[in-house]
Amino acid sequence: MDTAPVQKQFTFLARRSPYGSGHARAMLDMVLATAVFDQKVTLIFLDDGVLQLQRNQAAAGIGAKDLGAALGVLPLYDIQQIFVDGQSLQLRGMSPQELAIPATVCDSARISQLLHESDVVFTL
């Protein structure tokens, strides 16, 4: 009987805005759980997902928990492969220097490459 690998490359595509639905937070839960199980984790923010990286989110005003602050736990889970799509930032008037957490700015070709290198890809 062949045994399952103990580690795979899991890549998560964060494409949704942080509020308005529970998707972004539910995906963060997936990211953290995957890291807890000692897997290789890559997190990519693109499209409206880059809004999750906005600094100084005032989520309390809508009775929500601050997702930008929640992303601060990623280093504690040893998640270091964090990318953000440069064009998505630009389209939303966001600067790579003003993000809630450090992320490597990349282009769609790099994202394509990261996906090719992945064993499992999730988005939510």
């Binding site: 103990v6 795979k8 899991f10 839960d29 997936m30 759980a33 995957t34 199980f37």
Partner: peptide, 21 residues
């Protein structure tokens, strides 16, 4: 059960396919 069961299943599978994402 928890999300660990998804990680575990993904390790044991050739493909993980999502619907409704």
């Amino acid at each position: 059960s928890g999300l660990g069961q998804l990680v575990d299943a993904s390790l044991a599978s050739d493909r993980t396919i999502s619907f409704g994402a």
